[in-house]
Design a protein around this nucleic acid. Sequence first.
DNA 1: ACTGATTGTGAGCGATGGCTCATATTTTGG
DNA 2: CCAAAATATGAGCCATCGCTCACAATCAGT
Lengths: 209, 209
Amino acid sequence: MARKPQIKPRKKASQQRSQVTVDVLLEATARILVKDGYDTASTNKIAQMAGVSIGSLYQYFPGKEALVAAVTDQHFKEMMAVARDALVNVMVQPVETAVRELVRVMIDAHRVNPKLHRVLFEQIPRMGRTDDMDAFDREAFGMVRTYLEHHRAELNVADLELTAFICVKTVETLTHTAVVNHPALIAGAKQDLFIDETTRMLVRYLKGK
Amino acid sequence: MARKPQIKPRKKASQQRSQVTVDVLLEATARILVKDGYDTASTNKIAQMAGVSIGSLYQYFPGKEALVAAVTDQHFKEMMAVARDALVNVMVQPVETAVRELVRVMIDAHRVNPKLHRVLFEQIPRMGRTDDMDAFDREAFGMVRTYLEHHRAELNVADLELTAFICVKTVETLTHTAVVNHPALIAGAKQDLFIDETTRMLVRYLKGK
DNA sequence: ACTGATTGTGAGCGATGGCTCATATTTTGG
DNA sequence: CCAAAATATGAGCCATCGCTCACAATCAGT
């Protein structure tokens, strides 16, 4: 019963055409994941969809998990690319503005390929020992923690870790679930109400006695 | 590429010894899930652990998914058994008391076999089309919705569905994550702080302008 | 043009797991 | 005590999947 925690690429692509092969494989993996889900995705199917031989696949990836890990990494980088600027700007804003912007940007970030996000998100707890959070949450957690530290004077923060945890987990869950499972909640004009309510809850929590 | 959405038991147990067989199989399934996780659990292993032949297994369950579905059902019934009384009592309590009790009871409910809960919870999105919530959340959602309706006068509820969604999802996530992934957050004396903070956030959200 | 390095190919091996079916055992009802 | 029904058994078939390897095609540097 040997585990297969192989994640690292087997070989680095040095020529241009091999880089193309790698890209095509990642694209195919994402497509298969969305179309069939994780369980029924197989390396053979991925290779076929990529139009690449199974042998080539194994030249660059030791297995399905490595492919999914690479796709996950790429996906979270895309999400962060959407969010990072806004999050940095928010650091010097007052609470109301900061929280509202955090909620808004989290919704946008989750709207980058929501179907893929859903599949990957379901898979995360069972692979890479992130133990508690994914890479995206982790970075957000660090930012919120720093924000709370800098604005502690104007806020009611009993326990920094706990408060940061509550804020990040709440925003992450509400936006994730809304985008992925309840799009009706944030469709069109409804989105503003959703943002208002979530923001109000967190602001009153952070400022209140 | 035939799906296998078989969930229903293949045959009803009519004699006593066959009911024992079914029980033993469910017990074994739960143990295997906790020990090995969903992926590496197999019907052969489950039958072996149950001390029952693989043929008998297939007499009552059409496959792994059916077994897991049955275990899931049983598990959520146990959780609800822990929570239901408290939730009913809470219906006539003022907001502060009601929310605090909701949070407390949710933690207790999640402490019924947390390891099994974790595995099942990871699996739920990928099987039975609950689409958005599990059975447990669904019942809790109904209760919270009713509570909000009855106490609307003293509360600031803009949109009933949205408010109920925010409350249930927030409590569910925070308690789930705390119990399953961050036990340190609710260990010993820390638990009171956790409950205080979560309660404060929701109460101020529900009452505040 | 030549040659070694890089990249690509896919038939097929071995392992695993889902599930069946012919057969055996136990229970029930009369 | 005796059928017939219910229940239990497990060897083994079959499909799938991960992955290798011997070989072919392409490219880079000279």
